[in-house]
Write a protein that binds this DNA or RNA. Sequence first.
DNA 1: CCATTATATAGCCAAGCAGGAATATAGCTA
DNA 2: TAGCTATATTCCTGCTTGGCTATATAATGG
Lengths: 115, 115
Amino acid sequence: MEYMKPNLDRVFSALADPTRRRIVARLARGEATVMELAAPFKLTQPSVSKHIKVLERAGLVSRSRHAQTRPCRLEPVPLRAVMEWTGSYRKLWEDSFDRLSDFLDANSQTKKKDR
Amino acid sequence: MEYMKPNLDRVFSALADPTRRRIVARLARGEATVMELAAPFKLTQPSVSKHIKVLERAGLVSRSRHAQTRPCRLEPVPLRAVMEWTGSYRKLWEDSFDRLSDFLDANSQTKKKDR
DNA sequence: CCATTATATAGCCAAGCAGGAATATAGCTA
DNA sequence: TAGCTATATTCCTGCTTGGCTATATAATGG
């Protein structure tokens, strides 16, 4: 029941690892056990368990119990928190005729960035 | 040339520190020098410079030169990359009425398209 | 009960990081 | 030139991390 407000330190830190982002991507398609999550990697099982624990402590993953397995499920709240945090800077690139287009125009003579 | 393809490892890692997120928040309101960025913190100047360097290596900050100062500017591309990455999981909380749809409907300021 | 499967824990190591103090560099200004 | 300001660099420390191996726990099937 880790229904607290997401700790952005932990969430960003958890997502800073490519292995963990791949685990997140896998879990986005449904629950998976540790063994299933470990399969695509050349890592050992304990290493994968450690990654899962990091994701769990960040609130990104919750576990259940089923037979001997402890399936992982992706929790959307921290991801949403990341998106909201990032979204607060959205105007930086939305009204960026004064900012973004600076160095875009510097590299290419594209006058207008459409679409 | 680093800002073309944001390295999500570096970007997430850079944003995993609360000091650096505060620096980002400050820079969202305009350019600032190292001294100006360091002012709100009890950190030393070299520590702040180090944080800036991390943000710079992540592509989140670019520097210019003006007199003795080297003002920092926030670069939107990596932030947008984070938002796009996170947004690819958006359906997780959009079509999950069985989970948490209640308190996220409260403030959904998603403006679809304007202009 | 025993054996098997799934997962966790403990301990180790090398690498990285966040902080500081001290010092160096670079660009003004008088 | 000297001296001041802004920033960077170097070196140190303690803490964290990501990987491994080896071992422990937990649940199931016979």
